[in-house]
Design a protein around this nucleic acid. Structure first.
Lengths: 212, 212
DNA sequence: ACGGACATCTCCCGAAAGGGGCAGGTCGCG
DNA sequence: CGCGACCTGCCCCTTTCGGGAGATGTCCGT
């Protein structure tokens, strides 16, 4: 009568480098009859290993972790298991990060300031094959659907701008002419809707294009 | 025999806008016989209210929260209750934020990626009247003990620089001459050891002088 | 094979930023 | 009172940026 209905229980893996937060998730899941926490991981590598061994139904994954980022872990897991259901659970990371996570195969995107009810609902929804992305995140992504994505080279340039390097120095590092660096900057500023290089760096940080 | 020894139990208040993390802390504290979680708050105002009502022995406080920041809450609480024992528990916020928290009266400074053992030890240490600041934070503060603190005006200028404003525009906003803004910049750059305004903004973000 | 995206490069030019030095006024603290 | 910190302002000068317009080559996908 009281035998656990294992076949109907959602098997869950949590991935986050904050042990305290994992304990919080564990506490929340413990109270749910239809959910079982099968493992915890503290970085991307552990996440991939655990996933291979246990094949959880739903994985809760943070993005910024040591060793291997969440995006890389999602890519690796979905590469091996295309049906893997992964929910990103992170502090705000910007629309570009969110878009990258969804492109890598995440089925959900939540922020850590959520309440337990939202977490539980999203787990059940994603397990049922649905997608759940926070409205504000979806809006943020939608606002930049145009062609305003920076190219690889532009990001390389912008990273060095953020480090306080002049166009001349950046040109030397990338082994291109200073004029080319300026051309890249002239492409970056309108894309980010920035008034100058400092503004561009701030916007890139907010949108998750650059890390602090 | 089994009566709870209330007088010896450390009464704890947690303050964080992340419910999940609070649940994690609650789960960790629950397993400890000598600790009692007496209340939770999700912003600075609630924290001050709860503290007034309950006078917890130890308060765990995040810094960045909506409505009222942790620093403000610490200042308010320590203003009324100079013996309040407060431990800051935050994601990395930079040495300036940490220094401000300690100056406001915090007895401890921890990062959220800590493990339960460290949390419990720190709570007991702080309750016993000791101070506990993470070595890396203490080092970060010590590195900038000199006179490299930005003045109020310099921070006002730097905030506007981060918003992508030109010296001329900043001058207009602050109702001073452009030359004065340049003078401030000439003071800011060497203080932060920055090569240009963009670099200065990045360093200020990392050190907790500016918010994203 | 052709277009499109990307990266590269060039020229010109005005505006902005950064570096140096100097100096007045105010305010608070010893 | 006097000193130092702070905010304010100015000079000169060089370097850097940002905007505009154009051009070449490569590589990818249709």
């Amino acid at each position: 009568m009281n035998v656990p209905r294992r076949s109907e229980s959602i098997r869950i893996l949590t991935v986050d480098d904050h042990q305290l937060l994992r304990e919080g998730i564990a506490a929340v899941l413990e109270s749910q009859e239809d959910m079982t926490l099968v493992a915890q991981a503290s970085n991307g590598h552990e996440a991939v290993d655990s996933f291979r061994r246990l094949r959880p139904d739903v994985t809760l994954m943070d993005l910024r972790m040591p060793d291997m980022s969440g995006i890389e872990a999602i890519t690796a897991i979905r590469g091996e298991f295309p049906d893997a259901r992964i929910i990103v659970l992170t502090t705000y990371a910007g629309d570009v990060q969110a878009a990258a996570a969804l492109k890598a195969g995440a089925s959900g995107y939540l922020l850590k300031n959520l309440v337990r009810k939202e977490l539980l609902e999203t787990i059940r929804a994603v397990h049922a094959g649905k997608r759940r992305v926070l409205p504000e995140i979806a809006t943020g992504i939608a606002e930049h659907v145009a062609d305003d994505a920076l190219t690889r080279r532009e990001i390389e340039v912008l990273q060095r701008v953020a480090a306080g390097k002049s166009n001349k120095l950046i040109a030397a590092e990338l082994d291109i002419s200073e004029g080319t660096v300026k051309t890249h900057m002239k492409s970056i500023l309108p894309k980010l809707d920035a008034s100058d290089r400092t503004h561009a760096v701030m916007i890139a940080l907010r949108r998750g294009i650059l890390d602090i």
